[in-house]
Amino acid sequence: MRRSSAAAWAVNGLLALMALGTLFPLFWMLSVSLMSPGAANTFPPPLLPLHPTMANYRMLFLRADLGRYLLNSLIVSGGITLGSLVCNVAAGYAFAKLRFQGRDRVFGLLLGALVIPSQVAMMPLFLLARELHIVDSYAGVILPSMASIFGIYLVRQYTRAVPDEMLEAARIDGAGEGIIFLRVVLPLLKPIVITLAVLTFLTAWNDFMWPLIVLTGNNHYTLPIALASLARMHNQHVEMLMAGAMVTVVPVLLLFLLLQRYYIQGLLLGSVKR
């Protein structure tokens, strides 16, 4: 039994080391965000704030308009999530359960399009956004992400487990398709709806390239775009940047911690069979 206890030490020691590696940068972010301006740029680098202060946060919200960017992020991510719930859940259900002409062909086409990376579309998309006058607006970020092939796929996979007999029974009772969807199916889909909402919100919150392109002025900047621009302008203000990083990371980290079961389930559903 001696050997196995040495092995147990090794396994848990390695795990602890890896966890230290993943969590330390986040701990450091929190710690530096509470240091007074200039305090982090000393040698040896301090691990804890000598005099903890909220000054960096105050400065960001009062002078650097961070409140506006936080609100922008909430509006954009919330809008995308709502839109995606409406579009993807309805479509995912229809592709799984309703019989209509061309269904399998259209779905096959969508699956095939999954291999195309989104950047291929970005140049024409920008020109389109210009024609629609949605460059540098919430709509410019929200509209293109309101539906996703991945989201439809996710809902379809889950919905296939709903027994057809339930739907047939409702049809025999004379219920219309809309009523069946809302009253019979939707309550059963609650877990996947939550999963889709969490995944979509987190993806939207963290999205970088398209918002960077379409948000040409800083009025509608989301947090990541604002933080990236702040980092370029105020290279030396580590403490303030870490406060900005905190505001960008913490909301979605909390959301994930609250709903991690749903998030992980979606991740697995989405990866097992692309």
């Binding site: 479509a91 209509f100 291929v120 579309a121 024409p124 998309l125 539906a147 398709e177 809309g178």
Partner: peptide, 22 residues
């Protein structure tokens, strides 16, 4: 008919903002 109505919003978004741009 219902099937097409249900997939219409998603298909519209994906076509206009992804497939056609590609």
């Amino acid at each position: 008919i219902a099937g097409w109505i249900f997939v219409a919003p998603a298909l519209a978004v994906i076509s206009v903002f992804f497939l056609v741009p590609v």
